[in-house]
Amino acid sequence: MRIVTWNINSLRLRLPLLERLCGEIQPDIVCLQETKVTDDLFPLEAVRALGFAHVCFRGMKSYNGVAILSRLPIRVLPDMPDWCSRGDCRHIAVACGTDDNPIILHDFYVPAGGDIPDPVENPKFAHKLAFVDEARAWFAARDLRRTVVVGDLNIAPLEQDVWSHRQLLKIVSHTPEETSRLLAWQQSGFVDAMRHFVPPEEKLYTWWSYRNRNWSISNRGRRLDHVWVTPDLVPDLRAMSVLRSARDWDKPSDHVPVMIDLAAGE
């Protein structure tokens, strides 16, 4: 089972990039974030033409939005939380595989949090912290098995997940208020699948700002996109790749796809 997570930053705008991605690596499941399209305008036929017979999505105009595209049968899980009671289309979850032993897959788009790392001065930052707190508590209250969490979690938790730990400590996405919360969520029952393959001592990024035209040379990146698995799935991890080359595609997203291969779907 090959799973890809990608903040595509507008699905309709970047459909040709999705087609290129699928042609190059042939994923079984693609989890998208920031699709920026209402459900009635979702390009369902175009997505199905790429080989994804099973598609679920939650979207809104111009902002947010998540989608899961699958070549394998999936069913949407009901009764998921409305995080922070916002109804803002930041999460979707499915069961994939047989009903008696499915893989549970969660696709998240965590709020970015604005620019000011102060929950009193900045309501967007307060929302981000509350969202992660709610997610941690929800997962911690469950007996998790065969579960995968992917998405743009908008936090780079480790020192080597950013180009400069010292310079970004007061920058939203790497502040201690965020990193401690994200790690607490992860420790509620998950293993960092990306760091299973790349040691924490090594740099690892998935996002490079549009503001930096020479992004590859300066390499001032952050790891904002994540893949977590429950411990029972760790023996099934086969490969992981950050598709850095996608950052140089025509009209790219500022995030690049992350691919994980699991033997659990075999």
Rank of each mutant, 00 (worst) to 15 (best):
R2C: 10
I3W: 04
R12I: 05
E24Y: 01
P27L: 00
D28A: 12
C31G: 11
L32C: 08
T35D: 02
V37C: 05
D39H: 02
D40G: 05
L41I: 02
F42M: 01
F42K: 01
F42R: 00
P43N: 12
A46K: 15
A46N: 14
R48I: 01
R48M: 05
A49V: 00
L50R: 07
H54L: 02
F57V: 10
R58C: 00
G59P: 03
K61H: 01
Y63E: 01
N64H: 06
I68K: 11
L72R: 07
M80T: 14
M80H: 04
P81T: 06
S85E: 15
S85K: 12
H91N: 04
G97S: 08
G97E: 09
T98W: 12
N101F: 04
I103H: 14
I104N: 00
Y109L: 10
V110F: 14
P111D: 06
A112V: 05
A112P: 05
I116P: 06
D118P: 12
N122R: 01
N122Q: 03
N122G: 03
P123F: 03
F125R: 00
H127W: 10
H127N: 12
K128R: 09
V132L: 07
E134R: 07
E134C: 07
A137K: 09
A137Y: 01
W138H: 08
F139S: 14
L144D: 14
T147L: 13
V149Y: 11
V149R: 15
N154F: 15
N154H: 13
I155S: 06
L158G: 06
Q160L: 11
V162H: 08
V162P: 11
S164C: 08
R166H: 12
L168K: 03
L169F: 05
K170R: 14
V172F: 09
S173Y: 13
E178P: 07
E178M: 12
E178H: 07
R181Y: 02
R181N: 02
L183S: 04
S188L: 05
D192K: 13
A193I: 10
V198W: 13
P200R: 11
E202P: 14
Y205Q: 05
T206H: 07
R211F: 08
S218E: 15
H226A: 09
W228T: 03
L233S: 06
V234I: 07
V234S: 02
V234M: 02
R244P: 04
S245L: 06
A246R: 00
P252L: 09
P252G: 13
V256A: 04
M259C: 15
A264K: 06
